[in-house]
Design a protein around this nucleic acid. Structure first.
Lengths: 195, 195
DNA sequence: GTCTATATAATGATAGAC
DNA sequence: GTCTATCATTATATAGAC
């Protein structure tokens, strides 16, 4: 939004964010970034040391945004189950994939500890946040006490990340929703049946 | 194995399979394929129309192999729950990711119906296979009757695919296993507790 | 069937003018 | 700060000798 009113440096970061989401790190060239940002070579190498440096700024911002979005739902109103369900059902651009998770399939991102760090930290934060919320629900008797919060949290995040894979493979968001419904059915307290 | 004893065409396909797994389609250049296969430009363009044609042969073979591996476990001995658990727990090169699923994050693969087809068909087959197996377990009273086989199957496949994402983000296979344990705990018939 | 040349465009970066 | 050269390398493919 209003990308034309941003500073050159901002336009470079925003253009990089879009391209990383669409094409990943390996598939994104400086040239494509510059074209989208409406900037020349000089600007990019003035503000950033190179492609990895610019990508790091873009990834950090995307990761921060994803965390804020998740917290918006997970920290919202409702019981723990309701908030987990709201997180799983929240509207997503499913066919575009997860702008953070998709980076884990990028060989150059995984090869760089610096580029991987924000991805790791974000998914790790998400798992811990969900684990805490699940344990809260357990204390309230909403979930079976024999379940492990960290395990359930990992299963939840994995279902979301894998849901993107299924959706993109089939070319339709349906598979994502189907998997989410399956997980929610397994998680649902008996009292919420037919929810 | 014995890649040096294969025909040139075979070596090209096998080298492409390895590189697609390691670096994806966008990150794999004909040059890298040729170097790994020990072949010249001419050989590749003699046997294949170009990069997409060679990649299609490689993807098809990888997809077939993955299906055979999955069927080996899902069609094996044991109750439906045991076979699903065996599938989820089977040994994997977790940090390398899924050679089929990772292709869904490749923009050029998703943009091509031809390249996407084997990926889609394989994951679709897997979901149907798991759904049938789950329903078999339901008939035997192993799983709750209110659960939907297709939904559970999608959640299972998504957990595996997303498990790779978590593992690669953290640089350790642990997160994959944690998610799988979480899902199995949710699926487990009461009689298998402590399994 | 395989090889080496050759071709055109893109990649990722640097130099230096303005 | 931004721009336009310029550069060495790689990507993807064709041509044609052997």
């Amino acid at each position: 939004m209003y990308i034309d009113r941003m500073s050159t440096s901002e336009r470079l970061i925003e253009s990089t964010r879009e391209l990383l989401w669409e094409r990943g790190y390996v598939g994104t060239s400086p040239k494509a970034i510059l074209e989208r940002a409406g900037a020349g070579q000089g600007s990019m190498y003035h503000h950033f040391k190179g492609k990895p440096d610019l990508a790091l700024a873009a990834i950090r911002r995307t990761a921060d945004e994803m965390r804020a979005t998740a917290e918006g739902v997970l920290g919202g109103p409702g019981t723990p189950y309701e908030r987990i369900a709201a997180y799983l059902r929240r509207e997503r651009d499913v066919l575009r994939g997860c702008p953070v998770g998709r980076l884990t399939m990028d060989p150059d991102v995984i090869a760089s500890d610096e580029l991987r760090a924000p991805v790791d930290e974000t998914l790790d934060w998400l798992r811990e946040r969900l684990a805490g919320l699940f344990e809260e629900g357990q204390e309230q008797g909403q979930f079976a006490p024999h379940l492990d919060g960290e395990e359930i949290a990992a299963a939840i995040v994995a279902t979301v990340q894998g849901g993107y894979v299924l959706a993109r493979a089939s070319g339709s968001p349906a598979a994502f929703d189907t998997g989410v419904r399956g997980l929610l059915a397994l998680l649902a307290p008996p009292s919420t049946r037919g929810d």
